[in-house]
Design a protein around this nucleic acid. Structure first.
Lengths: 114, 114
DNA sequence: AGGGAATATTCCTGTAAAGGAATATTTAAA
DNA sequence: TTTAAATATTCCTTTACAGGAATATTCCCT
C-alpha cells in the first residue's frame, strides 16, 4: 500500500509551534533546501538548524535525501493531510451561520445589559 | 465589520499542542461546556482546567459566556479558519502527484544505488 | 450579612526544551 | 592519507510551562 492518511499526531502541532521550525516549514514550502541554506536564510547557527530539522523529521513533517556531504530536506505531505483531516471535523464551527448566531446572541446580551 | 479572517497566530498551535487543551477543544466541538463539566470529563482538577481554558482563551480559541456562578465556554471559529487558510497554502504539497513523483524519484535512487 | 458553590489566581516545584559552544561524523578532493 | 566542507551530536545553562495545593473572587441563596 502507498497512500495512507493516518490520524493526526500531536507532535505535529508541537513541532510547528516553535517559530524557527514554522519558518523552516514555510521555507520548504517553495522547494527542498540544504541545511546550510536553511541556516543561512533564517540567521540560525548550523547546529540549531540541524536540531530543529531533527524534531521536524521525528514528527514526519520533513524528510532528508542524502547528496554526498549535503542533506536535502523537503516536506512530507502526510502530516499536512492529517492536520487537514482533523481540521475538517471543525468545519461546522467555521461555518458562517455559526458567526451570525454568535453575533446575534452577543447583541441580545448587550441589550439586556442596559 | 464582522466577518474577518486574519492571519494565523502562532499561539494557536502551541495552545493546541498540549494534550489536555486539545482534549478540551475536542470536547467543545460537540457544544459549549462549563468549567466543572470539562474538569470532570477530563479527570482534571478545577484549577488546571481553568488554567488551560485561560490559555485557550488568550489565543482566541475559546470564549466564555458568564452565567451567574458558572462560565460557559465554547469554541470561536476564527482560529480554525485561520489555520485552514494557512494549511491551504500547502495544498500543492498534499496533492497526489506530489506523492507519486516522490515514489518515482525514490525508485530511481534505489536503482542507481546498485 | 453569611455561607456555600463555581471559578480564577497565586505560589511553589519539577521538568522539558531551546540556544551556545565544542566536538564528532561523513564525504569529496588533493 | 591528510584536509576541508557540510552536517549531526553532546554537554551545559537558562527559561517556559504544567501540575499540586492553597487561597481569592464572584455569585446566589437564606
Amino acid at each position: 500500500m502507498s497512500g495512507n492518511t493516518p490520524g493526526m499526531d500531536m507532535t505535529t502541532l508541537s513541532a510547528l509551534a516553535e517559530p524557527n521550525r514554522m519558518h523552516i516549514v514555510e521555507l520548504l514550502r517553495d522547494g527542498p533546501l540544504t541545511v546550510g541554506e536553511i541556516a543561512e536564510r533564517l540567521g540560525l547557527r548550523q547546529p540549531q538548524a540541524s536540531k530543529h530539522l531533527k524534531v521536524l523529521g521525528e514528527s514526519g513533517i520533513v524528510e532528508a535525501k542524502a547528496d554526498a556531504n549535503r542533506r536535502i530536506y523537503k516536506l512530507r505531505p502526510e502530516p499536512f493531510k492529517a492536520l487537514d483531516a482533523w481540521l475538517s471535523s471543525y468545519r461546522r464551527i467555521m461555518e458562517e451561520r455559526y458567526d451570525k448566531l454568535d453575533d446575534y446572541l452577543r447583541e441580545l446580551q448587550d441589550k439586556e445589559r442596559q
